[in-house]
């Protein structure tokens, strides 16, 4: 078990109309390489803020304290087969800690930042450097290693707003592959076509040339997943990725995510409000409430023997197919 990310004392504060709102308070959490970790909580629990902080997607106005130390498993021989067909990356174990505070110590960091930080970095060192400097100023320091899109794939809740409405699906996926893998357009399109097959879209050839509005919600989310994994990320973050879908499509997408994560050896961060869904997919569950980590444990322990009252409340609030009828409790004839 090697660590992918060690989050220490992470706090995120948003400024809203003059007052400060702490969305995440002092979270310490380890993400183990290759695991499926679910972050669950109700609205306002800070689970999405945590995901955004990990992905470096927080708005510039957010104030961040604490650190995220990344350690990319660079000696693994199981690079995603479909992703790294002909790249011979520089290999070497690296573990870098980067300060999250806005303190500018870029001068000291400069040499470290040039270390190969992922299997791809050796191949595209020039690119990486530019990619790093080009990134929007976010809460995470400038020299922080993982690059969203290349090292981290992010799937949002609403595929309609995360896909470009005036660009064909194929082009959107190809663009990710082109940007991060340095492929030519024809190669990138071929890659997009393979990816659409991998996300089990029926008739991927026609989807390639379709616009998002021509697809159903489930199809769009499959496309968004294809784009997220296009560059072969080590970490896939699914942020309420199934919440806007109906139960049947939700189950299909969960199955798909499980398969893709297993095939590519990705680490999965599954953000959800649904404890039952998290229990089906994740090996470990972290329960969040009011920006704090309430409980963290393997799924069986969380579901069968929660130590915290709040976790118990969430479990009791779940209305499954085996739940007792509320009609009797309310004194109504069933």
């Amino acid at each position: 078990m090697s660590m992918l990310a060690a989050i220490r004392g992470l706090s995120v504060t948003y400024r809203r109309d003059g007052s400060e709102v702490a969305a995440v308070r002092g979270i310490s959490l380890d993400v183990v390489a290759g695991e499926r970790l679910a972050i669950i909580g109700e609205s306002g629990s800070g689970k999405s803020t945590l995901a955004l902080a990990i992905a470096g997607l927080l708005p510039a106005s957010a104030r961040v304290e604490g650190s995220i130390a990344w350690s990319w498993p660079s000696s693994d021989a199981q690079a995603p087969p479909s992703v790294l067909p002909d790249i011979s990356p520089a290999r070497g174990e690296v573990a870098l800690t980067y300060p999250l505070s806005p303190v500018n110590n870029a001068a000291e960091d400069r040499p470290t930042a040039k270390l190969p930080i992922s299997p791809l970095a050796g191949e595209m060192s020039g690119r990486t450097e530019r990619g790093v400097t080009e990134r929007r100023p976010s809460a995470i320091g400038e020299a922080e290693p993982p690059l969203l899109g290349r090292d981290i794939g992010y799937v949002f809740q609403d595929p309609s707003s995360s896909l470009d409405p005036v660009m064909t699906v194929g082009k959107q996926i190809a663009e990710v592959a082109r940007t991060h893998l340095g492929l030519s357009w024809p190669q990138a399109f071929a890659k997009a076509s393979i990816l659409l097959e991998r996300v089990r879209l029926t008739d991927p050839a026609s989807v390639l040339h379709a616009f998002p509005h021509q697809l159903s919600g489930g199809q769009k989310q499959r496309v968004a997943i294809a784009a997220a994994i296009a560059a072969g990320p080590k970490l896939l973050i699914a942020d309420e990725a199934t919440s806007a879908l109906d139960t049947i499509v939700q189950a299909e997408i969960v199955t798909l995510i499980r398969q893709l994560v297993a095939e590519d050896g990705m680490t999965l961060l599954f953000i959800s409000h649904d404890i039952a869904l998290a229990a089906e997919l994740a090996e470990r569950i972290a329960v969040f409430r009011h920006g704090q980590l309430v409980e963290l444990g393997v799924t069986a322990q969380i579901v069968d023997a929660p130590t915290q009252a709040y976790t118990r409340t969430l479990l009791d609030a779940h209305i499954g197919l085996d739940a007792a009828s509320l009609l009797n409790r309310a004194g109504l004839h069933a």
């Binding site: 189950a251 039952a276 229990a279 997919l281 579901v303 479990l315």
Partner: peptide, 17 residues
């Protein structure tokens, strides 16, 4: 049948993956 099969369960299907 599809709707019932797709409903998330806390206990039964956990080891499927």
């Amino acid at each position: 049948k599809a709707l019932v099969a797709a409903a998330p369960r806390l206990h039964t299907k956990r080891d499927a993956g």
